[in-house]
Protein backbone atom coordinates (compact mmCIF):
# COMPACT_ATOMS: atom_id res chain seq x y z
CA UNK A 1 0.00 0.00 0.00
CA UNK A 2 1.21 3.47 -0.77
CA UNK A 3 0.62 6.32 1.57
CA UNK A 4 -2.41 8.47 0.72
CA UNK A 5 -1.40 11.32 -1.52
CA UNK A 6 1.51 9.39 -3.00
CA UNK A 7 1.05 8.65 -6.67
CA UNK A 8 0.74 4.89 -7.26
CA UNK A 9 4.00 3.01 -7.66
CA UNK A 10 3.54 2.16 -11.32
CA UNK A 11 2.71 5.71 -12.25
CA UNK A 12 5.86 6.87 -10.58
CA UNK A 13 8.04 4.37 -12.36
CA UNK A 14 6.77 5.15 -15.82
CA UNK A 15 7.16 8.84 -15.02
CA UNK A 16 10.82 8.24 -14.13
CA UNK A 17 11.28 6.29 -17.32
CA UNK A 18 9.93 9.08 -19.44
CA UNK A 19 12.14 11.62 -17.73
CA UNK A 20 15.16 9.39 -18.18
CA UNK A 21 14.57 9.11 -21.89
CA UNK A 22 14.13 12.89 -21.95
CA UNK A 23 17.58 13.12 -20.43
CA UNK A 24 18.94 10.75 -23.07
CA UNK A 25 17.51 12.93 -25.81
CA UNK A 26 18.73 16.15 -24.24
CA UNK A 27 22.31 14.95 -23.77
CA UNK A 28 23.45 15.38 -27.41
CA UNK A 29 21.89 18.85 -27.52
CA UNK A 30 23.70 19.78 -24.36
CA UNK A 31 26.90 18.32 -25.85
CA UNK A 32 26.47 20.27 -29.08
CA UNK A 33 26.17 23.52 -27.16
CA UNK A 34 29.27 22.70 -25.11
CA UNK A 35 31.27 21.83 -28.21
CA UNK A 36 30.19 24.96 -30.03
CA UNK A 37 31.05 27.32 -27.17
CA UNK A 38 34.73 27.80 -28.19
CA UNK A 39 33.43 29.79 -31.14
CA UNK A 40 32.78 32.57 -28.61
CA UNK A 41 36.29 32.88 -27.30
CA UNK A 42 38.65 31.22 -29.73
CA UNK A 43 39.19 34.42 -31.70
CA UNK A 44 40.22 36.28 -28.52
CA UNK A 45 43.67 36.28 -26.94
CA UNK A 46 42.76 33.60 -24.38
CA UNK A 47 41.84 31.06 -27.04
CA UNK A 48 45.08 29.12 -27.16
CA UNK A 49 45.14 25.63 -28.54
CA UNK A 50 46.36 24.19 -25.25
CA UNK A 51 43.67 25.75 -23.07
CA UNK A 52 40.81 25.26 -25.51
CA UNK A 53 41.99 21.69 -25.92
CA UNK A 54 41.74 21.14 -22.19
CA UNK A 55 38.22 22.58 -22.21
CA UNK A 56 37.11 20.42 -25.14
CA UNK A 57 38.55 17.22 -23.79
CA UNK A 58 37.13 18.01 -20.36
CA UNK A 59 33.63 18.45 -21.76
CA UNK A 60 34.07 15.36 -23.86
CA UNK A 61 34.97 13.29 -20.84
CA UNK A 62 32.03 14.61 -18.82
CA UNK A 63 29.66 13.69 -21.66
CA UNK A 64 31.13 10.19 -21.79
CA UNK A 65 30.63 9.76 -18.05
CA UNK A 66 27.00 10.93 -18.25
CA UNK A 67 26.33 8.65 -21.23
CA UNK A 68 27.83 5.74 -19.31
CA UNK A 69 25.65 6.51 -16.30
CA UNK A 70 22.53 6.64 -18.47
CA UNK A 71 23.30 3.56 -20.53
CA UNK A 72 22.26 0.88 -18.06
CA UNK A 73 18.93 2.35 -16.96
CA UNK A 74 18.08 3.11 -20.58
CA UNK A 75 18.74 -0.51 -21.53
CA UNK A 76 16.31 -1.57 -18.85
CA UNK A 77 13.67 0.83 -20.15
CA UNK A 78 14.11 -0.47 -23.68
CA UNK A 79 13.74 -4.05 -22.51
CA UNK A 80 10.71 -3.23 -20.39
CA UNK A 81 9.10 -1.48 -23.36
CA UNK A 82 9.76 -4.46 -25.57
CA UNK A 83 8.31 -6.85 -22.99
CA UNK A 84 5.23 -4.66 -22.68
CA UNK A 85 4.77 -4.76 -26.42
CA UNK A 86 5.21 -8.49 -26.52
CA UNK A 87 2.64 -8.84 -23.78
CA UNK A 88 0.23 -6.62 -25.62
CA UNK A 89 0.38 -8.76 -28.73
Amino acid sequence: MSAPGDPPFLERRSYRRRRLSDAARALPIFGTVLFMLPVLWAAGPGGTTARSGLYLFGCWFVLIVIAAALSRPLTRIAEAARDDKDDAR
Binding site: A24, L27, G31, L56, A67
Partner: peptide
Protein backbone atom coordinates in the same frame (compact mmCIF):
# COMPACT_ATOMS: atom_id res chain seq x y z
CA UNK B 1 33.01 15.23 -31.87
CA UNK B 2 30.35 14.52 -34.50
CA UNK B 3 30.24 10.76 -33.91
CA UNK B 4 30.45 11.36 -30.16
CA UNK B 5 27.28 13.45 -30.31
CA UNK B 6 25.54 10.81 -32.43
CA UNK B 7 26.46 8.05 -30.02
CA UNK B 8 25.61 9.80 -26.78
CA UNK B 9 22.30 10.63 -28.46
CA UNK B 10 21.74 6.99 -29.43
CA UNK B 11 18.37 6.90 -27.71
CA UNK B 12 16.87 9.23 -30.27
CA UNK B 13 18.32 8.12 -33.60
CA UNK B 14 20.62 5.10 -33.54
CA UNK B 15 18.21 2.98 -31.53
Amino acid sequence: LGPTLVLIGWWGLLR
